[in-house]
């Protein structure tokens, strides 16, 4: 993407939005949004994946709904309308998970309901879907949602692997591996997320550095 995205420019392709959410503007690692659910349920890979998929579904549906209704919603009450749309969708998802797996529902607990106040969803509804068409909003939501799933999975996999030596409940590091229990507890969540943020920042600066140096020389 060499073209800088301003409102006056022609609209970029929808694949750009997709990749944008997945990597360049990754909601968790780059924008640091939606941290609450990210940290709370990422103690095992399967929980993290389920939570990520639930959030992504809500994000996609809410972006689509908001985008379709964007000309009907009065400006003054738009935030409340968005929140009500999101809350209805979350209630549906909550019931759905309860129907599919009661164990998973118990493990995720109140955090499914808390998807309502996930800043990513309201942020995309207000920041993107309210001014763009359904197709582009859908692509944007898919990209952001997958970025979120990716981030949650990275976090959950590392925490489970280090904390109990397994991945998706399968022992990987051998029977004699002494689990690093603190990684499954709250502090571990903070440390692992900090580690990923540092890694992302480091990679970003590593890849950006040659360009800025060249620009500085000329």
């Amino acid at each position: 993407m060499s073209v800088t995205e301003t409102s006056g420019e022609p609209a970029p392709l929808s694949t750009d939005e997709f990749v944008n959410g997945l990597w360049k503007q990754n909601p968790v690692f780059v924008q640091a949004l939606g941290m609450c659910s990210v940290l709370a349920v990422s103690n095992t890979a399967i929980n993290a994946l389920a939570m990520g998929l639930a959030t992504m579904t809500v994000l996609v549906l809410s972006n689509l709904a908001v985008s379709l209704l964007r000309n009907q919603i009065p400006r003054e009450v738009r935030i409340v309308t968005y929140i009500l749309i999101i809350a209805s969708l979350v209630t549906i998802i909550d019931r759905l998970i309860q129907a599919i797996s009661i164990d998973l529902h118990r493990a995720l607990g109140a955090f499914i309901s808390l998807i309502v106040v996930n800043c990513i969803i309201l942020g995309r509804a207000e920041g993107f879907a309210s001014t763009n068409g359904p197709w582009r909003s859908l692509c944007d939501a898919l990209g952001m949602g997958l970025g979120f799933v990716l981030a949650l999975f990275c976090l959950g996999a590392v925490r489970e692997l280090v904390g109990s030596g397994s991945l998706f409940g399968i022992q990987l590091l051998g029977e004699r591996y002494q689990g690093w229990t603190v990684m499954l507890l709250p502090p571990g969540g903070f440390f692992v997320l900090a580690g990923w943020l540092i890694l992302f920042r480091f990679l970003g600066s590593r890849f950006a550095a040659p360009f800025s140096r060249r620009r500085g020389a000329t």
Binding site: A32, V182, L185, P186, P187, G188, G189, F190, F191, L193, A194, L197, I198, R201, F202, S205
Partner: peptide
């Protein structure tokens, strides 16, 4: 260090605080 500045540093601190609260 530059790479740690911002959110990452805050999260590291929060992790240590969280350990204390345990």
């Amino acid at each position: 260090p530059d790479v740690v500045k911002g959110a990452a540093l805050t999260l590291l601190l929060a992790g240590i605080l969280s350990l204390c609260f345990m």
